[in-house]
Nucleic acid binder design. Sequence first.
DNA 1: TTAGTGACTGTAG
DNA 2: GCTACAGCCACTA
Length: 107
Amino acid sequence: MEAGFFDKVFDVVRQIPHGRISTYGTIAKHIGSPKAARMVGWALNKSSTEKEFVPAHRVVNRKGLLTGKRHFANQNTMREMLESEGVIIIEDQIQNFEELLWYPSLN
DNA sequence: TTAGTGACTGTAG
DNA sequence: GCTACAGCCACTA
């Protein structure tokens, strides 16, 4: 079995530390396809079917905007989960976004 | 099988 | 700074 694009995405996303965030492009680039950022979002959408929890709420677009919140059960879920981790969000926009941004490290 | 769609990003004007 | 377009891969109908 080879890890597909989705599996790689899940693996990277699960490495995001508590209270930190990352972006679709950063993850896609880490996997090897910077232009396939869309697929990262697609994978996260499917992540709800994964047995192991995937912190999809820690992944936002490059502006620090919660563009994926509408894919959660409730549109407040994503913000609430992030806030519970200490992330400050105002109108779907992550504050101190650049400081919280986490870059995947090569294992 | 083909066509359409999607939680995005980088480049160009 | 903004808008417009192309590229990327997988899934569904």
